[in-house]
Amino acid sequence: MSASDTFTEADADVVEAQLQRRPRGVVRVAWRCHDGRPGVIMTEPRLPGGTPFPTTYYLTCPSLIAGCSTLEASGLMAEMTRRLGEDAELAAGYRAAHESYLADRAALGEVPEIAGVSAGGMPDRVKCLHVLAAHALAKGPGVNPLGDEVVERLADWLARPCLVEQAGR
């Protein structure tokens, strides 16, 4: 883990401003926005207090959250799910992304309640672009083909100033 991945108290304050709540169970910063703020955090598979939490890679950047919400409202998830049923190569890549996600979570600890369940609808459907984008940003290109597509579509959103900054925080 590099120093830029370490989750500091300052990072916790930024994520709290981004999400409007204090983050829980954070392992590290998995990806930082162009301005150095946390954009994706990696979380424990079991939150303090014992609640299972399958979302290992959690998108926190308000600009990207807004961009993913806009893409979801456009019907992109249904189109991507349809393509999974038609394109065997895409489906295989998405299944591999699911396995990657599960392996990363297993490295943090086993939680029987969510065994075999990744996030975002993987491996058979698309139900959350936020998760796919977070996974793709955290792991880099080539790991999650649909996450990579979401990140490509977010190019304009990636260049925007952090909404925390715009809100004067």
Rank of each mutant, 00 (worst) to 15 (best):
P141S: 15
L129I: 14
L137E: 01
V150Y: 01
L129G: 01
A133M: 09
A138W: 02
R125A: 14
G147V: 01
E152Q: 13
N144V: 03
D148L: 05
K139N: 13
G140K: 09
V126Q: 05
A136V: 04
G140F: 08
L146F: 10
G147P: 00
V151K: 05
E149A: 11
H130V: 11
V126K: 03
G140W: 11
N144L: 03
R153T: 09
L137C: 04
G140P: 08
A134C: 06
D124A: 11
G140E: 05
V143D: 02
P145E: 02
R125Q: 10
K139P: 05
A138T: 09
D124G: 07
G142M: 08
H135A: 10
P141H: 13
P145V: 07
H135F: 08
R125P: 07
A138G: 14
V151L: 05
G142I: 02
V150G: 04
P123S: 04
V150P: 00
C128A: 13
P141D: 10
K139L: 09
D124Q: 13
L132V: 06
V151D: 03
L129N: 00
V150N: 04
K127A: 15
K139W: 05
E152H: 10
V126A: 06
D124M: 08
C128F: 07
A136C: 03
R153Y: 02
K127T: 15
V126S: 07
D124V: 15
K127R: 12
D148E: 08
C128H: 09
K127D: 15
L146V: 12
A133N: 01
A136S: 12
R153S: 04
P123M: 00
G140V: 14
A138S: 12
E152V: 15
A133G: 08
V143S: 05
R153M: 08
D124F: 15
G142F: 07
G142H: 07
M122R: 10
V150H: 00
A134L: 08
H135E: 06
V150S: 01
A138P: 12
E149W: 09
L132S: 08
R153C: 03
